[in-house]
């Protein structure tokens, strides 16, 4: 069991060392998310619509689109020079490989979101600091679900020539329950509704997080198999 966790942490360590050297993943995700928010901010008249109504959708579109770039990049690194084959040759359970990649993706995405949220607060003129605890919970739940499913599907699509196209086509429809949950909850948080009044949405999002992780554990062996 100790080896299992060491293998997961080794994958996370390797991804972090690579990212610290290249800065490719963070910079591409951050710039893309920022561009999405800027495009929306110029196309929405905030004197007509409330920020709490349109803001959550914009925020999560930025997170998910930027996150998709990150997921594609993450598994492309494994395909380069046949590194995924190398990973398949080590005495590791395939789920350790999945969890290692999941944790890396999750942390990278959280870092990007940490930098995007203050900019969103400024551009949409909303006070997120007053609800930071509730917002953090929602962001963690949403990001976990996105990464759980995204890591599985990016490992699947990494073997395809059209992986950049296939990943969003496979990912977004399956993410709908989570996206609905987190967008609703973010909107309610911006309106000052406490998290305790959103247990239905929290339950929905958390359930899908668990389902996606469970499905990934059951299928990753077959997906990574050539």
């Amino acid at each position: 069991m100790n080896l299992y966790f060491n293998q997961i942490s080794a994958i996370v360590w390797k991804d972090f060392v690579t990212e610290l050297k290249t800065r490719e993943l963070f910079s591409s995700m951050f710039i893309f998310a920022l561009l999405v928010i800027l495009i929306f901010i110029f196309s929405i008249n905030l004197s007509i619509v409330k920020a709490s109504e349109v803001g959550p959708g914009v925020l999560w579109v930025a997170f998910l689109f930027a996150g998709t770039i990150g997921l594609n990049r993450s598994f492309m690194l494994e395909k380069e020079n046949g590194c995924l084959t190398g990973l398949m040759l080590v005495p590791a359970d395939r789920t350790a490989i999945y969890f290692g990649k999941l944790i890396s993706n999750f942390i990278f995405l959280l870092i990007m979101e940490f930098f995007i949220l203050p900019l969103f607060m400024i551009f949409f003129n909303v006070d997120l600091l007053a609800h930071i605890g509730s917002l953090a919970t929602v962001v963690l739940l949403g990001t976990l679900g996105f990464c759980a499913l995204g890591t599985l599907l990016s490992s699947l699509s990494s073997n395809l020539k059209t992986r950049e196209i296939m990943l969003p086509i496979l990912l977004y429809p399956l993410l709908i329950p989570i996206v609905i949950g987190v967008v609703r909850m973010t909107g309610q948080i911006l309106e000052g509704i406490p998290l305790s009044d959103m247990m239905k949405w929290i339950g929905l999002t958390a359930s899908f997080d668990i389902i996606y992780i469970g499905v990934s554990i059951m299928t990753i062996d077959h997906i990574l198999e050539e």
Binding site: W13, K14, V17, K21, N81, G82, T85, G86, P91
Partner: peptide, 25 residues
Amino acid sequence: ISHSTCLYADLTPLENLMFLAKMHG
């Protein structure tokens, strides 16, 4: 040893092998 090197291009030899050593326990 296959056609592919199975090495991470942005890591050093030491980092590549240390990663592998950790994966092998």
